[in-house]
Design a binder for these strands. Sequence first.
DNA 1: CTAGGATCCTGTCAGC
DNA 2: TGCTGACAGGATCCTA
Length: 307
Amino acid sequence: MPELPEVETIKRGLSKLTIKQKIKNIKVLCEKSFIGNPETVKDATITKIRRFGKALVIDLDNQKSLMIHLRMTGQLIYDDKGEKNKRYAAGHPSENFIAELPNKQTRVILELENGTIYFNDQRKFGFIKILATKEVNKDPFIKKLAKEPWQMTPEELYEKLQRHQKSCIKAVILDQTIITGLGNIYADETLFLSKIHPSTKAGTLTKKDAGTILNMADKVMNLSIASGGSTLKDYVKADGTRGDYLDKFAKVFNKQGQPCPACGKAKIEKIKVAGRGTHICPNCQPLTGDRFEGGRESGRTRQEVSI
DNA sequence: CTAGGATCCTGTCAGC
DNA sequence: TGCTGACAGGATCCTA
């Protein structure tokens, strides 16, 4: 769930709030969610926060780092009890953003000097892992990560598509060792903007298609980052009602039954591709037909991004 | 090597 | 109401 833009948002938020703070104490409420000995990072100070794809890395001043992966349902909530109980909450949007913490989904608590970071995770797929800062790049997950869309050329992606000829394009772009950052939401949005059906076999796509996919992934993720990912601010609107951060950028995700915002002719459908719920416009993203004959925009226009 | 499916875990929702 | 199965914003492991 938290995909690249959400993790980037967390990185920015926590950087402002927690850098230079000392970790006073760590409480591990769920053994599965914390790998390593918490005692070895007690009393260490947060110096820097980095992001590798969907993984967050908190560097400490004792040569150690905390690698955090939120997977499907992870959230990080910083509660600053000193200042009017101000809260910064991001990651998987849920009632935990505003709930009394800790609660039964709280897995790890990092007590800092001026506030507390709660790591909540309903499904326990996420984790926090202690690594030597020097070894972060050797972590099996981080080591295998591919480039992010804005770092990759159409040629590079095309070459990878050729190596996965028979896979659905959606499965291919969800693979973090092929291209980094997309998850189920941004994969659907990217393919919709690219006018490519998610079930299209990767081997049938052209270099031009690869460029389009990169452009659109770049575009949709940057739009999300610019509007602040998924945070408490979207979750609870000014009037107290629940908001949905998808409204800020999503054209197809979770929009099944609604008219396509691009063509207006067809309704968005929800199908299953690569084992995941998938949203398409059957009119804009036909699976067969003349998709190789003209019409589609070509080339790659670099979208500036500062990450 | 690739491709597809099962799996980890908790919670919610639709349908009977 | 209570049960059941499907599904969920991810990644890995296992099989063919």
